[in-house]
Design a binder for these strands. Sequence first.
DNA 1: ATGATAGTTGACCGGTTGGTTAAGTGCAAA
DNA 2: TTTGCACTTAACCAACCGGTCAACTATCAT
Lengths: 201, 201
Amino acid sequence: MTAAGDTRQRILESARDLIYSQSYADAGVAAICERAGVRKGSFYHFFPSKRELTLAVLDDFRTDLETELWGRAFAPDAPVLERFERFVEILYRQQKAVAEEAGRLLGCPFGNLGVELATRDEVIRQKVDGIFRDLEAYFREALEVSAAADELKQVDTAATAEAMLAFLEGILLMAKTRNDPEIIRRLGPAVGDILILAEDS
Amino acid sequence: MTAAGDTRQRILESARDLIYSQSYADAGVAAICERAGVRKGSFYHFFPSKRELTLAVLDDFRTDLETELWGRAFAPDAPVLERFERFVEILYRQQKAVAEEAGRLLGCPFGNLGVELATRDEVIRQKVDGIFRDLEAYFREALEVSAAADELKQVDTAATAEAMLAFLEGILLMAKTRNDPEIIRRLGPAVGDILILAEDS
DNA sequence: ATGATAGTTGACCGGTTGGTTAAGTGCAAA
DNA sequence: TTTGCACTTAACCAACCGGTCAACTATCAT
């Protein structure tokens, strides 16, 4: 334990900020250490490699977003359609706030790392994939509530959840490429249009 | 002119392959040169910088995809809905073929570079954005044909085109992260579900 | 034959990359 | 008081990064 004992946490936060606002490749270990006020040796005392650090960063993002975004949006105190609207609204506000602070819209930390590293690092690819699957589960469970109420259509809730997540990831990709948060507000509500029926319906 | 005269083209193709299959950061100038069978000095005779090379690569991808994908899918010989289905089908086949050749699903070259560099290189960000806008125009024009026939609804064709592109980019992002082309076939057809109405409808 | 020029070559540059190492320092348990 | 271990420090590493350069060659019009 350090006197302060927060060295690992400072490295993690520094890495979060730098990797998210730049990219995996652009965020060097030296820069991460400098921002954290830590020597490189300490860094490698807590993390065996930059890749392991990145996996920890992904876990950290997941934990935060699960409480601040997914959990909040999908709290069962609102009708299902409203939950998705809430998700989009929180997403918009959060991306806008981050964009104002960082000067640029940064998009989805999972999507960013997935796109950058999926072809180059199998471990990180699987990590991002797992996070996506977890998020999909939130979507799917909400859809199942809705599908049970509306018995006429045989909704493929898994596929629809997948498609909704894809749509939102695509919106964040476009918003980042256009550096414009309003895209989220303009396109986001259409997430409710998406519906994939089961084969044997 | 060289005896062969194809040096520039070979560099371009090598860069296309490496940047697409890896990433901007991972595709080094030395590796691009080696694959093209060219010395580094020749590289910098034809391209002033790696960034300029990347802009040329983006133009090259655009030219190819405009004839092989957009132009083919949106040829006016089919009903509008069928054109989008055709787009998805070509996308699926192409991504599957590339995935089998490269060993990994590679996704959208524009989306990949947009996500990786939007926050770090304003010129490339604008380039990718411009390509997205061009592609959106294909979508929008098709939607306008459809909207004219169906006069009941006041469709916001620009926003709907934007949303459809976002959805497809998101599908490619997920397909890459999951390394599975079937996602494209499973989710792609839902692109027809998306519809954004004009404010004053 | 000559001069101009497009293209090529390979050595070279300073800076940075992720990662290592040996020598400490400070605290906690025995 | 001593031992042990978590943690820190700063110097160091080979490999690689994007980019430069002066010298060279092949091809062209004159």
